[in-house]
Design a protein around this nucleic acid. Structure first.
Lengths: 193, 193
DNA sequence: TAATACCGTTGACTTTGGTCAACGGTTTTC
DNA sequence: GAAAACCGTTGACCAAAGTCAACGGTATTA
C-alpha cells in the first residue's frame, strides 16, 4: 500500500524515512468498486485522491441528462474538485470509479496542515498543482487548435491504453463529441493510414 | 509601482513590511507597448508576469498561419508558459501585449529561490497556481458542455469588459471559432433577448 | 488628408458534426 | 441460461459551423 504514491513522491521530492512517516500519518487508503462514487453533485469536496490503481472520472450532468467528462485520472494521477475544496461550496461534479480502484486520500484540511509542517510536502503539493495546470493547458491548446483526428491521436499518446480501458462513449464525452461522431473519426483514421 | 501586485498578495497572504521588502528585491517592472512580445515561439520561457495594467495574450500559430489564443491575462492576473518554465524546453507559444501594459516580472529561478526563503511567498505561489488551475478547469467544463451562446455569456461575466478592450476576432480565436461565427452568435443573442 | 490596412458583418455555399433509428454483438443481471 | 441492458457502428437526414467573397466603416500611417 502507498507504493505508487511514495514512489511518485520520491521521484519529485526525495524523502527520508522520518519525513515519510510523518506524511503517511495524514493519508488514508480507500478502495472503490466500479461505478462507486467518490463525490456526488451537491456535496462539498473535502478530499484529494491519488490513484494507486484503477481509474476515475470527474463529470457533470447537463439539464437534458447528458454526462460531460471533464477529467480522467489513472494510476499516478490526482483527482479532486479543486474549486469546491478551496471555496467550500457544493460541487457541480460527480467523481466515480471507471474500474475497481485503490486510492490514497488526504483531506483538504490535513493537506493544509501538512503543508505547514513539512517543506517537502509543501513542495510536492506545489509541483503537483503545477503539473495538473500544465496538463490542462496543453489540452485546452489542442481543443482550440487541432482537428478531431489530431486530438484523438494526442489523447492516445497521453493515455496510451485508455482506449482499452475506457468505453468509447466516455472518450467521446471527454472530447465533447457524440459517440457516433467519435466512431466515424476512428473509422476515417483507420481508412486513411 | 507594484501597487496592484502588493494589494493582490496582501489579500491572499498578508505581509509585514519586512517580508514585502524581501520579496520586492526579486521583482522587476517592465512596460510593454501594444503588439510587443514578452515571449516568442522557440524561446525558452524564463519569466512569470503579473499584469499591473493592460492585457496580454498567449497564443500559438498553426501551420496554415491561424492564431489560436489559449489565454488572456488582464490586470491582477498572471501570465507565463508554465510548461516551458518548468521543462526548460522552447515554447510553442507567443505572448504579446494587446494593449500598452505594465508588468511585474519574476524569473523562474528567482521564484524558486524566493519560495525557499519566504513561506509567505511559497504560500502565495501555491494559491495562485491553484487558482489558475481552477479557472482553466472551469473553462474546460464550459467548452465541453455548453452552447456557444452560453460560453460567450460566461466569458463576459468572467471578463466583464473584455468585449470593449479586445478585438472581436481575438475573442473568436479564444473560443476556437472563426470571426464570422462569433459575429453570428452575437447577432442571434441580440435578436432573441 | 489621402491612401491603406484592418475589422466586423452579411450572403451564398460547403463541410462537419449532431440526431434519430436500427442492427448485431457483448456483458450484466436475475 | 434466458432476458435485459449496454455498446459500438452505420445510414439517412438535419443543424451548426467553416469558407469565400464582398461591403462599408474605422483606425493607422505616410
Amino acid at each position: 500500500m502507498y507504493e505508487r504514491y511514495l514512489h511518485h513522491f520520491n521521484e519529485k521530492v526525495p524523502l527520508t524515512q522520518e519525513e515519510w512517516e510523518l506524511i503517511q500519518n495524514y493519508l488514508t487508503l480507500k478502495k472503490l468498486r466500479k461505478r462507486q462514487y467518490l463525490l456526488q453533485e451537491g456535496d462539498v469536496c473535502k478530499l484529494v485522491a491519488f490513484v494507486e490503481k484503477g481509474a476515475l472520472r470527474l463529470y457533470n450532468v447537463s439539464e437534458n441528462g447528458t454526462e460531460h467528462i471533464v477529467l480522467f485520472a489513472v494510476e499516478g494521477q490526482f483527482m479532486t474538485d479543486l474549486y469546491s475544496t478551496f471555496s467550500g461550496e457544493p460541487s457541480i461534479y460527480n467523481i466515480d470509479a471507471i474500474e475497481d480502484s485503490e486510492l490514497v486520500l488526504i483531506t483538504r484540511t490535513a493537506s493544509d496542515e501538512l503543508r505547514k509542517l513539512s517543506p517537502k510536502y509543501q513542495e510536492f503539493a506545489f509541483l503537483e498543482t503545477s503539473e495538473a495546470y500544465i496538463q490542462l493547458a496543453k489540452r485546452m491548446t489542442s481543443v482550440i487548435s487541432l482537428s478531431l483526428e489530431q486530438r484523438y491521436q494526442e489523447l492516445i499518446t497521453n493515455y496510451p491504453n485508455i482506449v482499452q480501458r475506457v468505453p468509447q462513449h466516455m472518450i467521446a464525452s471527454y472530447m465533447g463529441l457524440t459517440p457516433e461522431t467519435l466512431s466515424r473519426v476512428r473509422k476515417r483514421m483507420s481508412n486513411t493510414k
